[in-house]
Each structure stands twice: as structure tokens, then as C-alpha cells.
């Protein structure tokens, strides 16, 4: 019986390799901080990621506006959300931080702009 798994923490550049028991979520070794312990437990139960991409913007000084999910979303929903982003377009101007899609796919996370795109003259 091997319930042990190795998880590389992605929260910071150190990249701790954390050994964790998948069944009882007991940390065997490797975590250098509390956040890492939390991360590795989540990674076993319900792995989540921040998604970053871009959306078409019309009449802007740039053709694309970069966006992200403002909270981590379940890993298995990444491509479903991307499909939505590919079909979405917005009109300039858009300010950094503006919510473009609220509560996307009921994940509790919003799609927000990560840059400001002004209207083209």
C-alpha cells in the first residue's frame, strides 16, 4: 500500500517538494511553510489554478486585453473557461481590475482585466 505522493508546491519560486499521504493528508516531509502544507492538501483534494489569458478588445489601442480569474478555479474547468474567453469580446476602454465576466461557470471566480486598454483615437 502506497498512499504517499509527492507534490511540488507552486506558490513561490522555491518549489518545495512535499511528500503527503493521499488518504489522511498527513504531511510526511518537505514543506518549508504553512502555505505549502495548505497547498499540498488542496492539491490532493481539489487542485485549483489561477487562469490567465486574453480577450479580444474592440476599438482599443491594443487588439487584446489580458485577463485572469481573480480566484483559483478547479483545474478541470480550465479549458471550459477558456472556451468562453475565446468567444468573448469587449469594447475599449477597459480599466485594469474591471470585472468582465462574473462568477464564471459558477466557480465563484470572476474574470478581471489585468491591464488598462484605452480607446484608440
Amino acid at each position: 500500500m502506497n498512499d504517499e505522493t509527492k507534490i511540488t508546491c507552486i506558490l513561490c519560486p522555491i518549489g518545495c517538494e512535499i511528500r503527503i499521504n493521499k488518504k489522511n493528508l498527513f504531511i510526511i516531509e518537505g514543506a518549508k511553510c504553512e502555505k505549502g502544507i495548505e497547498y499540498s492538501k488542496n492539491e490532493v483534494l481539489d487542485p485549483k489554478r489561477i487562469l490567465t489569458s486574453s480577450i479580444l478588445i474592440k476599438n482599443g489601442i491594443l487588439p487584446l486585453i489580458s485577463v485572469k480569474t481573480n480566484k483559483p478555479i478547479p483545474k478541470d474547468k480550465l479549458f471550459n473557461i477558456l472556451e468562453i474567453l475565446k468567444k468573448t469580446s469587449v469594447n475599449a476602454p477597459v480599466e485594469m481590475g474591471e470585472k468582465i465576466i462574473r462568477n464564471i461557470l459558477n466557480t465563484g471566480s470572476d474574470i478581471i482585466a489585468t491591464k488598462t486598454v484605452k480607446k484608440s483615437k
Binding site: 511540488t8 508546491c9 507552486i10 506558490l11 513561490c12 519560486p13 522555491i14 518549489g15 517538494e17 489554478r49 483545474k75 480550465l78
Partner: peptide, 12 residues
């Protein structure tokens, strides 16, 4: 590259 990028860019 950084370990975090190997995980979230390749393995994922």
C-alpha cells in the same frame, strides 16, 4: 526553469 513552472506549465 523554476519547479513551479515545470508543474503548472508542463505537468498540468
Amino acid at each position: 526553469g523554476l519547479p513551479r513552472n515545470v508543474v503548472q506549465c508542463l505537468k498540468d
